[in-house]
Design a protein around this nucleic acid. Sequence first.
DNA 1: ATGAAAGCGCTAACAA
DNA 2: TTGTTAGCGCTTTCAT
Lengths: 332, 332
Amino acid sequence: MKITIKDIANEAGVSIATVSKILNKKDDNISEKTRQKVLAIIKEKNYIPNTIARSLVTKQTKTIGLVIPDITNPFFPELVRGAEDCASACGYNIFFCNTDDKIEKEEKYINMLVEKMVDGIIFTQSANNNEGFNHLSQIKKPMVLIDRDVDIPNIKGKVLVDNFNGACEGVKYLIKSGYKKIAFISGPFSTKTSLDRLEGYKKALEENNLLFDKELVLEGEYKEEWGNKAIGILIRNKILFDAIFCANDIIALSAMKSLKEAGMRIPQDVAVLGYDDIYMAKLTDPALTTIRQPNYEMGYEAVKLLVEILENEKVENTLIRLNTELVIRQST
Amino acid sequence: MKITIKDIANEAGVSIATVSKILNKKDDNISEKTRQKVLAIIKEKNYIPNTIARSLVTKQTKTIGLVIPDITNPFFPELVRGAEDCASACGYNIFFCNTDDKIEKEEKYINMLVEKMVDGIIFTQSANNNEGFNHLSQIKKPMVLIDRDVDIPNIKGKVLVDNFNGACEGVKYLIKSGYKKIAFISGPFSTKTSLDRLEGYKKALEENNLLFDKELVLEGEYKEEWGNKAIGILIRNKILFDAIFCANDIIALSAMKSLKEAGMRIPQDVAVLGYDDIYMAKLTDPALTTIRQPNYEMGYEAVKLLVEILENEKVENTLIRLNTELVIRQST
DNA sequence: ATGAAAGCGCTAACAA
DNA sequence: TTGTTAGCGCTTTCAT
């Protein structure tokens, strides 16, 4: 049988109110003697307070929902880890949800989260849908957006990455290393992320007086297969290039594979620059030069921000923009 | 202001009991007319029941704790994804925890989970500690163990992988392909997992009348660096080998890197066999032959089993052993 | 310094 | 067929 605050009170010969006060450190005017006695009994009986009951009255669950597309995508584990670490440090627990970029799933999970009375939600918007936010707009829970920038009405904060400068810096490095015909194997232009990187790419060319050639820009998906396909297109269309800048590391890896299969040497014949710096980037052959996204920090900062919003109203509508870092390895 | 069951009852001109019954589909003897009316109002008011309040009385939260070492380790995302998918399908939510193989963290999280009143816990035991289960033994929540086999008193079920046969099959394949001096770059022998694989390795040798040479077995950690180190040891000690069987894919990748740096060609000079089949295995160069662990299924089956235990007492003490699958690629 | 009591939103036995 | 009521375990106000 589960032991409750009442059992403790009985055992100690005090009221449950007293026990509750001690439990919540609102024990300014509780005699040290009873405090010690109660504490001792709590320990002895191995009493664990029932958070559910507490939540019912305090209206907060110390729980936050984390909604991402897919933990299986190497981009997310670090982010999730960062979020979890911060949550744990702040005394929060995390409900974890994968939406697969599907609106129905988003909707279902958001509902579940609201039912479970989470205090707030961390949300990574699906890549696809820039329309149907109706379901999201209705939610009154504080939300902070992460990684992908979209305009949803009731957002309380955003944690984004400076994709423009990240891409720009990376491409500049490529140029400085002597590469001139740099292909950009991009993600979908329906995302701000891809658009920003494209701008960064253009800026780098411009600053170095290189002409922007739209043949060198290929729009695709943030998926492994796209790297392979893109190289196919480039080669088939006999487009000349001496370097490729990939929208993420998975694409870069699969592109590297295709490049090798086509008999090109990396980085002698063509340089490869990735984006993200996933775990595997350092283990590839050659090790991948890439623009590191601070994924762990992103997750961490997002819940930090959310907790701040939750615990002291003021900080609403904050935008945190994190910087990338160029990690130079052997593929360039 | 949050809208409650009372508001619905008022609006509909019925009692809260009636609304509750309809909500819980215990509406056998509620007239279709009131049912419709109430349902309509629920919809109109966009009423979302408060699960917290419900849990307080029903004593179940429809919530499961998932405790793993580290989501950042490529082994876990698929497992977590499987767990989450099944949970979601069964109407459960998942609290997600990373312990970093640290006992204190395990303890802290388990406590948090109990406080949050999870219905059950899915647990991957830390690699290191075969001692201090005191904290775990005290927990009365149903627990199912996953991946790593240890004997903890109050476990209600286990989902494991058949490491013996997995390793055996893999090594046999290596032998059949003509490799004779197969090094085993193992994980720590403090884990049953590693021990089982070692036995499988031995069995395969034996069945093919090859002598077991303990110089070819190196015990280390399930960490990337170990692959690199192990190759170093092998080479430094001038131990001859024409194939390596690695305890997991990360080790295999880092070993492949070292091998190449030492000027050996894969698979001509030395074959590399991994274990796990992580996402990246197919993207390496050459693509890695590996023994696929059914990680997704493992996670999925674990929560399925837990839910069964939770919802109909009978199935206690079940052991589910999943099979591996040899995935042949270009590294052998 | 301590306790009585109301109430959080809901379910479930029992009454009507 | 529907409603009344007693909790679930806790916090918090207000007395004492």
